[in-house]
Design a protein around this nucleic acid. Structure first.
Length: 264
DNA sequence: ATGGTCGACTCTCGA
């Protein structure tokens, strides 16, 4: 039994609905983690997506951020609607974690929109690092369950120089700063496996191309959308694919889907 | 080439 889990920063679900429906219809992921839905829960186009056979949970926010989780299989529990460890009130909509009743057994999946952090240094960068520290603490707790777990999303971290077209152009950016990379690798040292590097690892395989300056046409991209897997998920990971062609469509998001398949 | 991309929204910010 194969289970496919995708992540895609759609950059507004309303602006992207035709693209999202087309892609879901073709790729047919079992589970899809969406980021930057940029709408409140009541504004999410549920019916159109439910019609394709998905159960839906959202954590929305007006104008900015917002995450969603789509699943062909029942969502038996919404474990978290925010990343634990925050101080509540000004919480941004960047995290949802669910337990899905997949045919091969339960799988815990989170849709993650990690703060961008620019400009760095500054309060936005501090918030990014604080958020990553909270994610580290929460992931440590989840790993103790020793269950299949996939933390999928826009991490806003370029792991290696090989994951950016021009490392010099990104020097000093919050997506490549050593503290950002250190925090990202600290998640892996906990025991999480980054699916792309584990199975593929090729240089210059990107998941984001800026709208500006002809970045897509010049293939000036970066790889910032990742699947992090617990040992119980990584052991069953069979493939990882970046759906690059999606970036070339009309009205494309600046990110493309990344899809992992598992024998689960 | 005196602009340069998009999306949400009140007009300017975030990415």
């Amino acid at each position: 039994m194969t289970l496919s889990i995708a992540t895609w920063n759609v950059n507004s679900i309303k602006a992207r609905l035709p693209n999202v429906l087309e892609w879901l219809g073709e790729a047919k992921p079992d589970i899809a983690c969406l980021q930057e839905i940029k709408c409140q829960d009541e504004g999410f186009p549920r019916e159109e997506i439910e019609r394709l056979g998905y159960n839906i949970e959202t954590v929305g926010q007006k104008s900015y951020n917002g995450v969603a989780l789509l699943s062909r299989f029942p969502i038996e529990e919404v474990a978290e609607r925010a990343l634990p460890g925050g101080n509540g009130e000004e919480e941004q909509a960047r995290y949802i974690e669910v337990v899905i009743s997949a045919p091969g057994g339960p799988v815990r999946v989170a849709s993650i929109y990690l703060p961008n952090g620019n400009p760095a240094p500054g309060p936005k960068y501090d918030y990014k690092l604080e958020w990553m520290a909270r994610l580290h603490a929460h992931a440590a707790k989840l790993l103790a369950y020793e269950e299949p777990l996939v933390l999928a999303g826009d991490y806003n971290v370029i792991p290696r120089d090989a994951d950016v077209h021009d490392p010099a152009a990104w020097e000093g950016d919050a997506l490549t700063l050593p503290a950002s990379r250190d925090a990202f690798f600290a998640l892996q040292w906990l025991g999480l496996t980054e699916a792309f590097q584990h199975l593929d690892g090729r240089a210059h395989q990107y998941t984001f191309w800026d709208y500006q300056a002809g970045a897509w046409q010049k293939n000036n991209g970066i790889r910032i959308d990742h699947l992090l897997c617990s040992p119980q998920a990584a052991d069953r990971l069979k493939s990882i694919e970046i759906h690059k062609d999606v970036r070339g469509k009309e009205k494309a998001s600046d990110h493309v889907p990344v899809v992992g398949t598992f024998d689960l």
